[in-house]
Structures are given as structure tokens and as C-alpha cells.
Design a protein around this nucleic acid. Sequence first.
DNA 1: ATTAATTTTTAGATTAGTCTAAAAATTTAA
DNA 2: TTAAATTTTTAGACTAATCTAAAAATTAAT
Lengths: 223, 223
Amino acid sequence: MEKALSLTEENYIKAIFQIGTTPESNVSTNALADSLQTKPATVSDMIKKLSYKKLIFYEKYKGVTLSESGLKEALKIIRKHRLWEVFLVNHLNFKWDQVHEIAEQLEHIKSPELVNRLDDFLGNPTIDPHGDPIPDANGQVQLGSSKLLSEMTSHENGIIVGVKNEDPLLLQHLDKINIRLGLYIEVKEVNGFDQSMQVKLADLGTLFLSEKITSQILIAKNL
Amino acid sequence: MEKALSLTEENYIKAIFQIGTTPESNVSTNALADSLQTKPATVSDMIKKLSYKKLIFYEKYKGVTLSESGLKEALKIIRKHRLWEVFLVNHLNFKWDQVHEIAEQLEHIKSPELVNRLDDFLGNPTIDPHGDPIPDANGQVQLGSSKLLSEMTSHENGIIVGVKNEDPLLLQHLDKINIRLGLYIEVKEVNGFDQSMQVKLADLGTLFLSEKITSQILIAKNL
DNA sequence: ATTAATTTTTAGATTAGTCTAAAAATTTAA
DNA sequence: TTAAATTTTTAGACTAATCTAAAAATTAAT
């Protein structure tokens, strides 16, 4: 029986997963140090440890990637994080911008039985309150094809299915302008200079969005 | 703003509270070492630290007691532990012998908002699945007067309101012989030699209980 | 293609929590 | 009330995770 990961190890694995998902390249020491609010020297040491444990592949000066087992661990943590977020929002009436920090703690609770029962209690949700997919007990993720609002052009439309970022400031702003998951959205006009957009929201009228914001919103094709 | 307690510090404070409740005396270094599965030397060091932080009173060679602020911390941890146990049993369908270990982890989650919302979600319960009282948000405990079954004599009766011990082996055994909280119980006969008892349980007939077991069961006077 | 800038790693320290072994204080008992 | 047993504390060392400062490797730029 392999020893369970420490809280710190789990945070490294999760950070590697999250940085690694966007570009399909190795994760650099500096990027990890940034993401984990620590120093490159510290990351360098931990990388050796995780590599020794075969959770990551590592070549000096070349950054890291998750191994099979590392990926499995990452998905377990993500699964727990997102299930707890569903619980917090759906049953304890937290707002979507208030749950990230608490879920960061809850994601480290170790009990497979607890996770699976929580999953059932919640009705086996497939997305969390921010629209991110929840891996199932086998680590399978159901990823609906979606694209960023910022990548769409005039007259394209779809359904808002997710937000890339859990920054409370962004989420609170989206709340204020009535952007919620599940809403129909249509691109009216794109400003060629700054990529800002005029969009129409369901029957809530039109609004302007900067590229900073449209690049955080995920849209699924409206079939 | 005082810094939050570490997980280890919380465990020491909780252990001092739990050992300290039964006799109204100072808690010894060895007792703490036993309870925390560590060595007296380790306890000695930690005691100095907690004393410096004014969470406990400490005189060399004389053991420790909780200070006002230490007690407050202890009650916060106990509150969380018991609320989570209610959640696990009432909503995730765990049995009462399965929840202690998981609650030991959940009790360290730091978010006053979470605790209070959980409390509301659960309907502000006053006892946990083992019959132990749950401190409210101000640390107040509603302690109904109860006595140990082992302290009762022939023909006395009452309602089973708690179990002193969370040992899964005990709890599973009680389950098996149909002992649950809320049940009417009546002492039929006490064996003078080993203090074992014959008792009558609601309409479930009579059974024999050893002193090992009767000394773990709390009974409230049936008015 | 050298040099400059950046990134990454190593070296050496630090802190929290733990341990073993031994010394000191307290309690128990003859 | 002195000796024996027990409890508690000190001393010194170890591990995990962190840091700063400096060296080494890589990448970018003139």
C-alpha cells in the first residue's frame, strides 16, 4: 500500500494539472512557483520528490508533466473540489464566488467512501457551479465541446456553460450583469481594435464586454 | 488578528478538553501522550508552545488546564466534529460507527461561515449521532442530566441518550443487539459480582450486558 | 557566436513537529 | 524518611517544507 500524499504534494499535483491543461507542454519551475506562491528553489526540491515517487516525469531544466498515477491523483482532487462546490452552492446556499477557498480545504479530506456518497447525495452532477466538468469515480471527464466567447464572431450564438477562472471579483461582476450558466447568448458586434463585444443575453437585453471578460466565458454551440 | 491554530495544535487542545472533562483535575503529560499516540517528550514541547500562546495554563510537573481561549477553541472543534457527524449520518447514510474518523478530518476545516450554514442546513441539531451535545455558535452546550447505565440499580428506567465512546467495535455491537438512542430501557437485575445487568429494552425483550458495556451507555431519567 | 538575460538548480539555513536517551523532579513505599 | 519507581523535562538529532544567496544551465539578443 503506497502512502497517501501529503497536503503539499496534493497541491503540487493539482497545480501541475491546472497549468498543464491549457498548453500541451511541460510545466516550468517558475510557473509552478508562481501558481503555488512559493519560490523556484522550493519547487525544484519538491519536483525531485514527486519524480522519485513517479507521480511526474522530470528532466532537469525541462519542466515536468504528470505521469499516469499523477494524473489519477490530480483528477481525484479535482473531483472532490468540484463536488464540494456543488454541495456548498446547492445545499448551503453559498454564492459561486464564495466557494473556491472552502473547497480548497475540503478537497484534501481523505475518504473515498465519503466522496462517492457525497456524489450520490448531490445526484451525480457532471458540472460544478462554474460549469467545469466533474470527473467521475474512475476519473472520466465528460467534456462537452465548448469555446471561449472571445473566439466567436458576429452573429454566432450559444449557451453559457462555464467560466475559466474562479476569481471572486470576476464572478461577482458576472453576477451583477446577470451572466449565469445556461443562458442563451448571441454576439452582436466585435470591435476590431480591442476585441470588446456587444452581446445579446437571452431576453435580458444587450451589453458590452471587454476582451478580459469574454476570454473567461465558455460557450457551447447552440444546436 | 491572532494566527489560526495548526492542525497539531488543534488536536492537542481537543485532547486536553476530552481528557479534562471527566475528572476536574489537571491533564498529565503522559495522559496526553497516550491520547495523541505520541511521546511524552513531544507533549512537553508542545505544552510550552500552547502555554506561551496562552491557550493553556501550565506549571512544570503539574500538568495543564485549558484557559478561557483554549476552551473556546476546543468547543469550536467539538462543534464542527459533531455537526459533520450529523451530516454524515443523516444525509450521507453512514452508520454511527463509521463517522468518527472522517469527522476527525472535517473538524479542522476553517470557515465559520461554513459551520453556521451547515448548522442551519442540519436544522440546528443539539446532539450528535452518539448522543453527545453539540455546542452552539457561542460555545454553549445544552447538557441534559444523564447518568451511566452502570450506575443504575434494579427497577430504575430511562431513555438511552448517548454513548461515551466512539469505538466502532462498541458501536457495531450495540447496533447488533438493537441498542439505539431514544430507546426506553429498564434495569431488571444487577449481578453483584461482576456488575453485569439484565435489562428490558422497549418492546424488544430482555438482554444481558457486561459492565464494560453498561459503563459506556448514558441514560436520561424517564420523567 | 559571444554576451546578456533569464531560468533552474544547488548549497546551506530555518521552523514545526517529531524521536531517543538521559537527567531531574515528583510520587510511592518500605 | 530515605530509597525505589514513576513521571516529566531537557538535550540533541531527524524529517518535511520552506527560505536566501549563489552557481550553473538554458534561452534570447545583439
